[in-house]
Design a protein around this nucleic acid. Sequence first.
DNA 1: AATGAGGTCAACCGCGTGCTT
DNA 2: AAAGCACGCGGTTGACCTCAT
Length: 367
Amino acid sequence: MGRAPCCDKNNVKKGPWSPEEDDKLKAYIDQFGTGGNWIALPQKVGLKRCGKSCRLRWLNYLRPNIKHGGFSEEEDNIICSLYISIGSRWSIIAAQLPGRTDNDIKNYWNTRLKKKLLGRRKQSANNRLSSTNPDANGVEDSSSSQALSNSALERLQLHMQLQSLQNPISFYNNPALWPKLHPFQEKILLQSLSEISNPLMQYAFPGTQQGDAQKVDIYGQLVDSDTLQQGDHPKSSDSNVVSLENSLNVIASSDSPIPLSNGTNVMDLTSVPRAGMADQSDAAVQPVSNFQSELENFLNSKTSGFTAQGDQIGEFDCFKEMNGSRDNMNWWSNDFETKSASSNSWDSTSVLQSERVFQDYELAYNM
DNA sequence: AATGAGGTCAACCGCGTGCTT
DNA sequence: AAAGCACGCGGTTGACCTCAT
């Protein structure tokens, strides 16, 4: 036996609100308020609507100071940053954007921002196609190749953050699902991790600077960077792992409260239970330490037996230039208006996307 | 001009939580 | 303590709009 309906479904009007209904509801609430009972409100107002429908209409449309459309670039960045950080907790994200409703932001993310990001991915795929078709001289266009790799790196950063921070059983948090990586791919991964506090995060969490918080080690313990010695951790003599430690320290820096422009901080946001779903909130906001330990396991299994050769390091160095553009906040906005955005979803295609991202790297490696 | 595909967004639905009785 | 209820949330739907063919 299911829950009793909140109203008589047969006697309530559904569908779009008429201007008359809007006027009635607005006039009543302006004069008397909601009375703390949405269910009883429609009767008082004289509307044949469900109380929940009235509430939604008021909150999303009739309420004063509501903004519709015309999202600014800064708002875009905040939404992206918070989504990466806390996932689809639209009410919390909306709380950071005065005048915006959770419904509006949710729609905006699903219809625009997500596709903006994926559109870039598609463009990258196109670049890959063109880069695998060298011109008649067999000389490949170096700029397109670099753009491809750069794009792939940035996508991986965002995607890994999305997956690891949001979904505890995601591809990225499940070593069993990880493919065997080419040493080069591992290097790229490490470089990506070192940028996990990427520019997007800087918008919502402006207090964090890359490499500015070497206070927490990969074991989640507070560490004085001056006293951290080589050998303090089992793998610290391995250059890859040293790099990982630095990377994870950066990640771990977000464990510290980071001020937002409105006076709250990151921990305020990430520690807010999902209203109505408190049990899920812990999973929704993955503790960074879990991500760290998973990565540590990953490095244990993936770096053993591999020693980077000098020429390989040289190849890695050719990607240093990539980092030059990482402070560009607008990397994902280039094709904002691109009509070619696919209907892929982050969630359903994560593994496939991951594999294709790695294919990007493989291509770059083969160049 | 007609039509179909894709995009947008307001509204609905169902669920978990917490308050009240 | 337990049941009932309203609230608030995120996910989903479907009507409407726009654009390409």
